[in-house]
Nucleic acid binder design. Structure first.
Lengths: 341, 341
DNA sequence: GTGAAAGCGCTAACAT
DNA sequence: ATGTTAGCGCTTTCAC
């Protein structure tokens, strides 16, 4: 049982014939240790396989080297990619992520405040964790003096640090691609209207249409949820209204899949009759029928950048909360084609 | 800055006019405190909003109330559902999950051993985190005396606790459904052969065939990866070999999607020409074309059960590592139909 | 450049 | 039933 005999700073000090403080200095990369002593201690640390006990360190230095992670939805593809990137970066810099509550309703606030009061995390990363109109808890955290970085949506007005995708440009890209293909009757099925990403993608859509001199038809804009079902139902609505349209811009790939499903069910074809473009580039997109043309968002990169920023803020309180924007990429596959009508 | 003035056990003791020891007893639900004193302390704790500092507690009691989470792939749908269930259960029982490395190759071992040596997690939950033949690190953990629960695969031979799906029965269910539909030439595209779940699903397939008196044709069994592409390529192979078959059992929904894609590309239809059944019931399954018939695995339930078991093992070392099996459900949609040939 | 002492917030072992 | 005394493993003073 290696557990019972855990190697402490005392073991290292004894073996290297120095005091524990000197060992402590080496661990913390202090410069006031002579090169020889440092080397000798370094070696014994290696030999003994000594690892400082973060808990004890935290108690003494009032630090935990722990970050909190709160997310709206763990089962979201985008989220999991962000987390993978975030974890990697945290590890690199000597931090760990503690999982907070996955839900993020106001009534869950006590749950993730537990991260602060009990676990004393030094910063919190929110991954797509709230809607625009519900950010009280984020402000609360700020009051606590805890650095917060948000991801996947932004609230510039409250000066929160955030790392996000340029959704206006993404929406523009999607719509403009369709316009370039000759479409003028372009429907849009959005995500829930409370999301910043939704209003941004919508703005991009509107801008592209305006730039091309295409009149905006409110009848072609439908608000849905993020789920397949929403795409399916809204498209059926669109189809029934016999409001002519030749293309759909879906706010995510799931909606796009739902839409294609409805189109097939109506006896029409994609892209022959109607072009569909999605958003996200989930793994399913490439192998669905037809392979989905979509807007890819960088995700691991966002997680990494967000974590890096968070740790910067943790380690240096003078770092001002930045807003970092990543760009999207248009991924052309086979769900869109030139408009013949 | 609420942060600077943190409430400690001393504040509570002073306010309640007792020693910190008595407060400690109340926090830890000890029974040797008089009801009145307990009540008085309880009240002051509420009033002051006191939260014990887990770090300090850990130092003194050699406990961290922290669990480690290691996963093969964060971006896997199944994984994220398991985690959601796991997190909820941990929270309920006063524990937190620390994210370990997401990869799980032997060379990553130091990375997640860090959870033990530095973070002193009290138990580790592995979510679909390894192949059968690479479990040295799990054994290493066991040697450390750290409770380990694995999920999504099992290694009964080494007596590890695990919570899993009955994949033999799942494979049987899928195959038997196809047989019931009149299919006798049933191809199977498996996941990577090192996975326990793969050999189990294969066994279920074989059993069903045998029970029905259908001869087994090795040519119809292809080994692939978990990705869409694998389903796509293997199906093309199957199609080219003009080895007649009327149905495919795919080891996950992604493979199934890839297979359907290949079938469409060959000018054939699903389910008219070939029936396809998947495994997992990912959200995409319901809204793909055709909606995918598949085997659903409980996921959140598995995460919850695994965490519960892990905590039991942490709190009581006499708890024997159990093996808990969950059952699968056949979800019938439209990608399979009766064989007419 | 290095060491000794004090203490972080809490619990375990003894006291009473 | 409650209080006292030691630490847990580390970092921070402040000495030398």
């Amino acid at each position: 049982m290696a557990k019972s005999k855990h190697i402490t700073i005392y073991d290292v000090a004894e073996q290297a014939e120095v005091s524990i403080q000197t060992v402590s200095r080496v661990i913390n990369n202090r410069h006031d240790v002579s090169p020889e002593t440092r080397q000798r201690i370094q070696t014994t640390i290696e030999e003994l396989g000594y690892k400082p006990f973060v808990n004890a360190r935290g108690l003494a230095a009032k630090r935990t080297f722990t970050l909190g992670l709160v997310a709206a939805d763990f089962s979201d593809f985008w989220f999991s990619r962000v987390v993978t990137g975030a974890e990697k970066e945290a590890q690199k810099l000597g931090y760990c992520f503690m999982l907070g509550s996955s839900a993020c309703e106001p009534e869950d606030e006590p749950k993730f405040l537990r991260l602060l009061t009990e676990r004393h995390v030094e910063g919190v990363l929110f991954v797509r964790a709230n809607r625009d109109n519900k950010c009280d808890h984020l402000l609360r955290l700020k009051e606590f003096g805890v650095p917060v970085v948000t991801t996947g949506h932004h609230l510039p007005e409250i000066g929160l640090a955030m790392v996000d995708v340029d959704n206006v440009s993404g929406g523009y890209k999607a719509t403009n691609y369709l316009i370039g293909l000759g479409h003028t009757r372009i429907a849009m099925i959005t995500g829930p209207s409370e999301w910043k990403s939704v209003s941004d993608r919508t703005e991009g859509y509107l801008q592209a249409l305006q730039n091309a001199g295409i009149p905006i038809d409110q009848e072609l804009i439908l608000t849905g949820s993020w789920l397949h079902q929403s795409g399916y139902e809204k498209t059926k609505l669109l189809l029934n209204k016999k409001n002519s349209f030749t293309a759909i811009f879906a706010h995510n790939d799931r909606i796009a899949r739902g839409a294609i499903h409805a189109i097939y069910e109506a006896g029409l074809k994609v892209p022959e009759d109607i072009s569909v473009i999605g958003y996200d580039d989930i793994p399913e997109a490439e192998y669905s029928d037809p392979p989905l043309t979509t807007i890819r968002q960088p995700s691991a990169e966002i997680g990494q950048a967000a974590t890096n920023l968070l740790i910067q803020m943790v380690e240096d309180s003078t770092v001002i909360p930045k807003q970092i924007m990543f760009d999207t990429t248009l991924v052309i596959r086979s769900s869109c084609r030139a408009n013949k009508s």
